[in-house]
Design a protein around this nucleic acid. Structure first.
Length: 504
RNA sequence: GGCGAUGUAGCUCAGUUGGUAAGAGUGCUCGACUCAUAAUCGAGAGGUCGUGGGUUCAAGUCCCACCGUCGCUACCA
């Protein structure tokens, strides 16, 4: 049996869940669902990142403790993922005791291996921003670019991670098919070529963080705590055998804004701790609204719940999986979402189910016949499965789904050529054509189930099957001829009612 | 400034290691059909593959320059 471990980024709790969070989460969810159908032992992790200065300050502003602040926002992420049928096996929070244990153990290992040293960090510090600036970034050589007031020269003692000592190991890792797509791997290589400097990984100025076990005055800087969540969740610091079972299969899904951390710092930390770097990191682009990064537009009010109201859970999931390809940035568009829903879900799939169930009722007495083993659609279905499986394997949901829709389009054309509605009721020929169509719907329900968590079940039931397509095992269930026939076919209301275009 | 990414039909995008006369979906036009959610099927129009050079028997696919857009330039999640 194979094992598969997939993670989303953990989301920072200073921000409410929006579609920029939902996209990678839905993607990881669909991939996890696919692997479960393959029979893989699957672990799917998401969660929240809860330490750091921003949280501490947000809590102060709201008059609550940092923990209360984190609790509230973390719950909003849980709610959002429940709404979207996210099937995560775990939801990790960096404030959990098990995570503190894991962080302390992992970084202690790094220290014992000689990769952590004490030093001091010095630079121009803007108190209003609570951040350091490079001299080059200062306006007129002295002023903070945001607050336009003088930044002060600060020095603080920090512990430093000796990143610079790991260049060779990092290059090896990056050159062994680990970071996708290719362009993002090159960006990571570019970061290394610019020269690696040691990084400060602790803070004395705040206390909302994981304490440094060997020095009470310090907490770990939030990033070096956050990354370790992926290890905590599968047992690091608690059950090393469990960790060793899962860790070699770790696949991270991230956004390009955190590439540096996941493709340089994180593998370096793991190597320094004597552990394996992640198996794969898949980097997505940004979702843009009006050409701007979502989190910078103030349009984060595009809440998943609002879109679910208009498109349903499946409509929401399908749009992001089908239209947003991994790698490049892509523009979010409500109009595009409507167009995709109508053409793929309402017209191609939903309408196919409607016409098939109707004809089965008119010509086959409402009982689904068996498919023809020699059907011309069998080859199309085999091709569709192969392409879809290849797409999921590369974490390319648009490719995987397009392959399924290709089969659906071919089936609409097949019906058009054969015109079963003109055939004699109860004849062998109409039984053959409709059996084939029902078999395609069975296959489509299975192959689309990672995306359409609800309507795939509805299709399954409508063609008379029991259970759920998501319980089927691949690849066996994808071979032609699995529809048993002699089942009662139910003619229901349209699965995906067409939507009107907005302000048309 | 330095490094890097990207620019293919109206729109969203595919285009492996350079090689049959450039593709898909959607949109548009025309036709067919009427089982079906004004759905479906067929046909067609539509691209000098950002611009200009170069390498090659052959380039969207490699090299150079330029233009446009975007990102990174380190502790801001």
């Amino acid at each position: 049996m194979s094992r598969f471990y997939i993670t989303t980024p953990i989301y920072y709790v200073n921000d409410a869940p929006h579609i920029g969070h939902a996209y990678p989460t839905v993607t990881a969810d669909a991939i996890a669902r696919w692997h479960r159908m393959l029979g893989d032992e699957t672990m799917f992790l998401t969660g929240t990142d809860e330490h750091g200065l921003k949280i501490q300050r947000a809590a102060e502003a709201n008059g609550v403790s940092p923990q209360e602040q984190a609790d509230q926002t973390s719950q909003r992420f849980r709610d959002a993922w429940e709404l979207l049928d996210i099937s995560n096996d775990q939801f990790i929070r960096t404030t959990e005791p098990r995570h503190h244990t894991a962080v302390q153990e992992l970084l202690t290992r790094v220290k014992e291996n000689g990769f952590i040293e004490k030093g001091s960090y010095a630079g121009y510090y803007c108190v209003a921003c609570e951040a350091y600036y490079n001299e080059d970034d200062l306006v007129d050589g002295t002023n903070c670019p945001i607050h336009e007031r003088p930044a002060e020269w600060f020095e603080e003692d920090n512990y430093f991670f000796k990143l610079s000592a790991l260049e060779a190991e990092l290059l090896d890792w990056l050159n062994s098919d680990t970071v996708f797509p290719e362009g993002k791997r090159n960006e990571a290589l570019g970061i290394i070529k610019l020269g690696l400097e040691d990084v400060s990984i602790t803070r004395t100025s705040i206390d909302w963080g994981v304490p440094v076990p060997w020095d009470d005055d310090h907490v770990f800087y939030v990033w070096y705590d956050a990354l370790i969540n992926y290890a905590t969740a599968v047992g690091f610091g608690a059950d090393i055998d469990e960790f060793n079972r899962w860790w070699p299969e770790a696949h991270h899904i991230i956004g390009k804004d955190i590439l540096r951390f996941h493709c340089v710092y994180w593998p370096a930390m793991l190597i320094a701790a004597g552990l394996q770097p992640p198996k794969q990191v898949h980097v997505s682009g940004f979702l843009l609204v009006g050409g701007k990064k979502l989190s910078k537009t103030g349009l984060t009010q595009i809440a998943p719940a609002d879109l679910v109201e208009d498109f349903g859970v499946d409509g929401f999931r399908y749009h992001f999986l089908r239209d947003v390809s991994f790698g490049p940035d892509s523009e979010f568009s409500y109009e595009q979402m409507v167009s995709r829903y109508n053409s793929d879900l309402a017209n191609t799939l939903g309408n196919l189910l409607s016409r098939v169930t109707t004809v089965v009722h008119k010509k086959c007495g409402g009982v689904g016949p068996t498919p023809d083993p020699e059907s011309e659609l069998a080859a199309v279905a085999a091709e569709s499965y192969a392409a879809s499986a290849a797409g999921w394997d590369k974490l390319q949901a648009p490719v995987a789904l397009d392959a399924v829709w290709n089969l659906l389009r071919e089936t609409n054309a097949y019906l058009e050529r054969n015109e079963p509605w003109k055939m004699d009721e109860g004849s062998d020929e109409v039984a053959t054509v409709m059996g084939d169509a029902l078999e395609v719907l069975r296959l489509a329900a299975i192959l689309a189930s990672p995306a359409l968590t609800r309507s795939s079940d509805a299709i399954w039931t409508a063609i008379g099957l029991t259970g759920s397509p998501s319980d089927q095992r691949l690849p066996e269930a994808a071979s032609w001829g699995g529809y048993p026939g002699d089942l009662e076919v139910i003619k229901g209301t349209p699965l995906f009612p067409r939507l009107k275009a907005p302000d048309a």
